[in-house]
Amino acid sequence: MRSPITTAIAIAAGIIVLLGYFVPPEMTQFAFVLTLRSILVGWAVTLAGMATLVGIINLFMVHTGRMVAKRNPDRYSILLVISFIAALGFGLYLTPADAQYQKAITSILTPISASLIAVLAVTLTFAGFRLFQRRKGLIALAFAVSAVFFLLLGAGLLAPLQDMPGVGEIIAFLQRLPLGGGRGILLGIALGSLTAGLRVLLGTHRPYSG
């Protein structure tokens, strides 16, 4: 049994924030709803910050445990713990606003992120080649053909064809297709999001134990 008090607080906060979306600022007689909503959103922002801090402490503890584990200590965890302590220590001493500190951090983070994206590009290329091993049928074919077509279009290789009478109109039509498809998917996502939100507001889905 989950705590009814926690559930009641969650439902009440959810309903107030939701009502805040429907009350326009012009309706002054319901201004208290907007005030309550902004207070609750402010608390949520503070909670989010604290949650991140708790999560980072948990991350640090997990890696410290793995670093000192008797069986198979993790060498990557040693790196993480050292860099965490160094970044935290220098950040506290110099403050995050210090230009040298920012330069040092971004000099490490930027190349790492860039190399991760480079690896991702290679990974996705291989995934594209392996697509037909994994999926058969018309959908996979349509996916591959459209991916190649829009790659060529994005690279400007089809630009000479766009000036040709008839072909230009067909290309313009094909360019609009992803917009329609994307909007269709997003409508489905929006409906799913609505029902997921309603489950929480009704207290029937409680992602908290209380």
Partner: peptide, 28 residues
């Protein structure tokens, strides 16, 4: 995300508690 990690821990804890085996829950 920090808030998600707390909720995931809480979700796991609730699942073990409801099943009457809270001692099996590991926050890590």
């Amino acid at each position: 995300d920090g808030s998600l990690s707390i909720l995931s821990q809480d979700t796991l804890r609730a699942a073990y508690r409801i099943a009457n085996v809270p001692e099996l829950y590991d926050p890590d």
